[in-house]
Write a protein that binds this DNA or RNA. Structure first.
Length: 153
DNA sequence: GCCAACGTTGGC
DNA sequence: GCCAACGTTGGC
């Protein structure tokens, strides 16, 4: 069992969109970074826990808890010429971008980035390291526990 | 809008 | 394979 943090811009897809989504599940489309893709394709398993993080918005932070709910499969948007995620080099036979489904566990209060930075127990989190930009990062069991504890306050 | 950081591209 | 140029991310 592993833990992950997955970033989403709320103007694109927010925690409230996930609450309203069919089966409260969404294919995590649009990832176009190889390391982030590899995490989904090679390292995620159904049942892994996910921190749903709002980025590039007035109040960045953790907005909910979710779970990986599918095995990896091709991101449809890579084949869609009208999509901004279209990739001309991807084919059905050799898809380049893989994703997993993410299902809501629960919407939480917003654990703000400022609060995360202030928590000593979270200082090892990859997302808080200088220069980190990856949209999907691994989280340790200890970090997960601390986040849940902080959320429960 | 700024800017630091980092990934990707492409010429050589 | 190197590396400069360029584009993107994302907090502020």
């Amino acid at each position: 069992m592993a833990y992950w943090l997955m970033k989403s811009e709320p103007s694109e897809f927010s925690i409230d969109d996930l609450v309203k989504a069919k089966n409260q599940t969404v294919p995590w489309f649009g990832v176009r970074n190889y390391l982030a893709r590899n995490y989904m394709r090679d390292y995620m398993a159904v049942g892994d826990d996910v921190l749903f993080y709002h980025s590039s918005c007035p109040e960045p932070g953790i907005a909910g808890l979710a779970k990986v709910s599918s095995t990896p499969y091709p991101d449809e948007t890579q084949f869609d010429k009208k999509s901004k995620y279209f990739d001309a080099k991807a084919t059905r036979e050799q898809p380049r971008w893989m994703l997993v489904d993410v299902r809501l566990e629960r919407k939480t209060r917003l654990l703000s980035l400022a609060e995360m930075r202030a928590a000593t127990s979270l200082e090892t989190m990859v997302i808080l390291q200088r220069g980190n930009r990856l949209s999907i990062t691994p989280v340790t069991a200890a970090e997960w526990k601390s986040v849940v504890k902080l959320l429960g306050k």
